[in-house]
Amino acid sequence: MIKTHRIRKSTVFLVLTIVNVMAFSLLMLHARSVQGRAGELLASSSRIARELQLTDLCLFTEARYTRHPAMGDVHAAFQDHPIALEHFPSGSLVPAPLPLVR
């Protein structure tokens, strides 16, 4: 009689979980190693921001007040009409400007 050794399902699952944990740990190590160089990687952005005294990130270029959300005034979104609804898609992602300092 030939005796066959079948791998148990629980062993397969445990091996898969260990592989998952290892992959996860490797990604965390990758994040740590790149994070250490974050300043260096973002150096050109920081240099340009410092030289040109930039106040905003270039994220949403579709409207003036979404390009520079930190500089926009409270009514910028309603400039077309006092009850005009926001019509730029990024307007729904960018909250209203913070209260002005007086």
């Binding site: 965390m28 990758h30 994040a31 790149v34 994070q35 160089r37 974050a38 990687l41 973002l42 270039c58 994220l59 949403f60 270029t61 579709e62 979404t66 730029f88 898609p89 990024s90 992602l93």
Partner: peptide, 19 residues
């Protein structure tokens, strides 16, 4: 697509991992 909205000009950036 969510970030681009109606922008014609959109930055292409590679993010630095922050976990």
């Amino acid at each position: 697509p969510v970030l681009k909205g109606w922008s014609v000009l959109y930055p292409q950036f590679k993010l630095v991992p922050a976990v």
